[in-house]
Design a protein around this nucleic acid. Structure first.
Lengths: 362, 362
DNA sequence: TTGTAGGCGTTATCAA
DNA sequence: TTGATAACGCCTACAA
């Protein structure tokens, strides 16, 4: 049996000897339909494999039943693992509620055009804003377009008049820095993300405020701000440990550069934990999770501030769908705290513990 | 100026004092339109920010201008970096040709339903099949649905009657195994992907055929087959090097488990290259690429069989769009060879070179 | 409880 | 070169 001919509402209603209206109502769960009729209709629809055409339904209802995500395609960059885990979470929710996830991979400069296109062509019912900058121009643009949106992160536009979900990045980096300071570390490096991004500048604020509070030296040569890829961490770590005064601890904004740091340390014969403490922000990226075989988890390798970005994706998607369902429901804001999880890469500062020459670090 | 009211074809034609027909033709580049008229129309459309409604256009033309991708959501799994880099490549092409990329994140068991939904609701004009199994049931299903598709990989269904793009995985693993054997390695482990997947079983074939050809021992305890995540490589490497007869070389099916292997070796004090040779299949995942700062690249760390999965995504997307444009154009097949790139993780087998006790490997 | 008729915003056919 | 007019397939007042 070839299923190639698509059966539409008219065909189905003809087969049933009913009007299109009744069939439509029966399938869409209207209460006034006779239950016997409904049963007949549902059965026939199933048998003939009828489903309403997406574009016809959209046209008639004005709802696209789709959410847009724009993937910025910077230079030689990339749909990175943070991004894709977020999408995985959001996508689960969309699928569950019958929404389509629509992805546009375009150069960053064209992002505004995409939103205009989404709006004027009624392609989507809403969008998620990724990687907000401080005073991000996308926010006023989306407002003016009347396109519902939720921001993953915050933009600090002064008004706060938009829905967002964010991790408390400042607090997370405060706690991590404080934790290292408590262990006796005095020279703490920060391998941060791009500080044009709001989350990264917040992280730096957290780090710097603790250094200031505790009267620790603030050395600009210990601070880095780039795209969070593995080779970045590798390069910076090699640079740091070839300098005359290397740090005794490092804060890293993502496990990706943290892996690079660990790789560099291995090459240099420096032991994470024993010789240098490392704390990374851990988004629970899926490819780093051990297969859950029911066994209890070991002590994690990396000490980390942890918050699942995939869970964030789920929640942001839910918030957006709620907002679309109830446009006048007001803005929603959620601020999540990251866990501080102790692994094997942090220990008391060896320099302080034994005020003798530290382990060879060339 | 609020742009919230969407201007449609009727409004635009009223403003211009023309019929909808003429306006539509002018905008869609029909040749019979007076050039002066066309100029007027284009100008007005731009000024009023008119764009045809996506669903209305779809309904009228029967084209969805969208391509579907199904992201399998296994257990605690994941939209992994291989997948997302492929999507990034494909997405570039779609955006370029005015196609939408549509993602469905669903449990593996529901994938067939998604295709049925796509087809019966005319949601998409085609789909990409990811991670084909041998005799993959999705292929006959998609054929029966009349939904155009291209397979990333091959399914070996006997007929080959479908379009695909694949890397020559067998040859790549032949070459890599041969290269290690040439370096004097006799005990070579294989940390493979899930061999239910066609690509993984081909890789194993390549590996085994070279062992057989060269009369090397085939030890089943050196072969592993799991999901290609980082902790997998870590766990297996620890297991291998706590065994009485560890391998002197390891083939790894992805850089993700390879990173885990390297991490385990670091913990054990075993040096990649010098003590154990490692070759990984490198899909050129973006988060592992150094920022291209114009400088010449260093010697890569990992010796690898290399083929850009993102480039594959681009090409698969092109093939699919071509097939949609010319449905009778026949099947297209492309088999890509992976490069063998020498890095720092391969060297002559130390055991053979010095037939003395190898470096401590406990 | 069911049916009729009109509209959603395009594109496409035919006539002028 | 332009314009009526009819699809496209669904939803939804309004009427029966």
């Amino acid at each position: 049996m070839s299923m190639r001919e698509t059966v539409n509402l008219r065909r189905l209603s003809e087969v049933l000897g009913l009007s299109q209206t009744t069939v439509s109502r029966a399938l869409n769960g209207f209460p006034e339909v006779n239950e016997k009729t409904r049963a007949r209709v549902v059965e026939a629809a199933q048998r003939l494999n009828y489903r309403p055409s997406a574009s016809a339904a959209s046209l008639a209802t004005g709802k696209a039943c789709a959410i847009g995500h724009v993937v910025p395609l910077a230079e030689h960059m990339m749909i990175n693992p943070h991004f894709s885990d977020f999408l995985a979470g959001a996508g689960e929710v969309y699928a569950q509620f019958g929404y389509e996830m629509l992805l546009r991979v375009v150069a960053q400069a064209e992002e505004a055009d995409v939103y205009r296109d989404f709006a004027s062509r009624s392609r989507v019912d809403g969008v998620v804003v990724h990687g907000p900058l401080t005073n991000d121009p996308r926010i006023p643009l989306l407002k003016s377009l009347g396109l519902p949106f939720v921001v993953h992160g915050r933009s600090d536009d002064g008004t706060g008049d938009y829905s967002w979900l964010d991790v408390n990045n400042r607090r997370a980096f405060c706690r991590a820095t404080g934790f290292l300071a408590d262990l006796g570390h005095r020279r703490i490096a920060l391998i941060n993300g791009l500080e044009a991004m709001n989350f990264a500048s917040r992280r730096r604020q957290g780090y710097e405020s603790v250094l200031a509070d505790r009267g620790l030296e603030q050395d600009p040569s210990l601070i880095f701000s780039e795209d969070m890829v593995e080779p970045y961490g590798h390069r910076v770590a090699r640079q740091l440990f070839s300098s005359p005064r290397p740090p005794t601890a490092i804060l890293v904004s993502s496990v990706l550069p943290a892996m690079g740091v660990v790789r560099a340390l291995a090459e240099l014969g420096i032991r994470p934990g024993a010789d240098v403490s490392i704390i990374a922000f851990d988004d629970c990226l899926s490819f780093l999770q051990p297969a859950s075989d029911g066994k209890a988890r070991d002590v994690p390798f990396l000490t980390a501030m942890r918050s699942s970005i995939r869970e964030a994706g789920r929640r942001v998607a839910e918030m957006l769908l709620e907002q679309i369902a109830a446009p006048d429901g007001g803005r929603r804001h959620e601020l999540w705290e990251a866990e501080l999880v102790i692994g094997e890469t942090t220990a008391r500062c060896p320099v302080e513990q034994t005020p003798l020459p530290a382990a060879a670090k060339s």
